[in-house]
Amino acid sequence: MVYITIIICSALGILLGLNLPTISYTYSGYLAIAIIAALDSVFGGLTSILKKNFDIRIFVSGFFGNAILAMLLTYLGERLNVDIYLAAVIVFVGRMFTNLSIIRRIYIEKWSKKYDEKHNAKQE
């Protein structure tokens, strides 16, 4: 059910995005950093689902909070003439990799357990 919602809504989002007008170059940098922050929240959410401690409130607040904070930091960096957005990119992408590795580990453990069970059942 969740997967169906995700697929349908993603398809809707793609259609909507293709029909929306493009934004100006000045703001595309902010949008990019917000996308990275949002993707990080999505991977964090996936990990927490697998760990069975997923909380929709934490997910939603992180999704919007991270995006807005990242944009604000980028704006501040622009004012200060420091590329602060690089720090945000490093943190978010680094976390994405960590979360991916956690997801990978959980699935590999699951599959290897199943394989072992089957193997043992055959032997007995």
């Binding site: 993603s10 809707l12 909507l16 995005g17 929306l20 595309s28 996308i35 949002a38 939603v60």
Partner: peptide, 26 residues
């Protein structure tokens, strides 16, 4: 919960595609 996840999916993908389009134009 489904509604929230749905809204977030729409938001994320639409914003991503707007950005793809913008980058292409630039």
């Amino acid at each position: 919960m489904f509604i929230t996840i749905g809204i977030i999916c729409i938001l994320l993908t639409s914003v991503m595609f707007v950005q793809f389009k913008t980058v292409q134009v630039i």
